[in-house]
Design a protein around this nucleic acid. Sequence first.
DNA 1: TTCGAGATCGGCT
DNA 2: GCCGATCTCGAAG
Length: 217
Amino acid sequence: MTFDPPPGEPGSTAADDLLPRKFFDRPVDEVAPDLLGHVLVHGDVAVRLTEVEAYAGPLDPASHAYRGLTPRTEVMFGPPGHAYVYFTYGMHFCVNLVCGEEGTASAVLLRAGQITAGADTARERRPKSTERDLARGPARLCTALAIGREQNGLDVCSPESPLLIIEGDPADPSLIRSGPRTGVNGAKDTPWRFWIDGDPTVSPYRAHVPRKRNPPA
DNA sequence: TTCGAGATCGGCT
DNA sequence: GCCGATCTCGAAG
């Protein structure tokens, strides 16, 4: 398996390659499948998105916004086209893109993708991963792209931003599948996980398993 | 290949 | 204190 060379020098992304903000200013369940095939760029690493999940704001029990506006979820309640990065399980970062009108607090979790540029850099960050595993899973995707707290709130539609979403090869609509969301306790019957069928970088589905606790002595 | 369990800490009740 | 939009490793089939 080979990787295509980067389309140009890092940072040379033309502004008209960026997805426009109005792309994100739509209902989250429309934006999520449309994101498949587009490319998230941070530094010299680029990832073509192959798997995403939609979260519908305060009405969605699976969403961080379910409990309302908090300092953590502030970005979700802001304007569309911004990155919401959160820290979970004490060790992992995950990245979402805010969708819909300001205040709706809906977002798309970026779950997996294929590295299309900067594979060497990504491999340095994840030396134990095979090529297909480099961005297979939301936390791995963040590691491969070096996304952390500093990237929270960045505007991915602005050419000035270090974190950008650029137009890629849109996924073949006949290959887009949807199903229940991964690792989510509430609202697990909502088929808001979207992926490109047959793509090896799509993470395996795992039903939610509550963590076992140490029994009291 | 699949399954089970541990790791680790911020956010919220 | 409890829980979580996860990942990794080791063991077993």
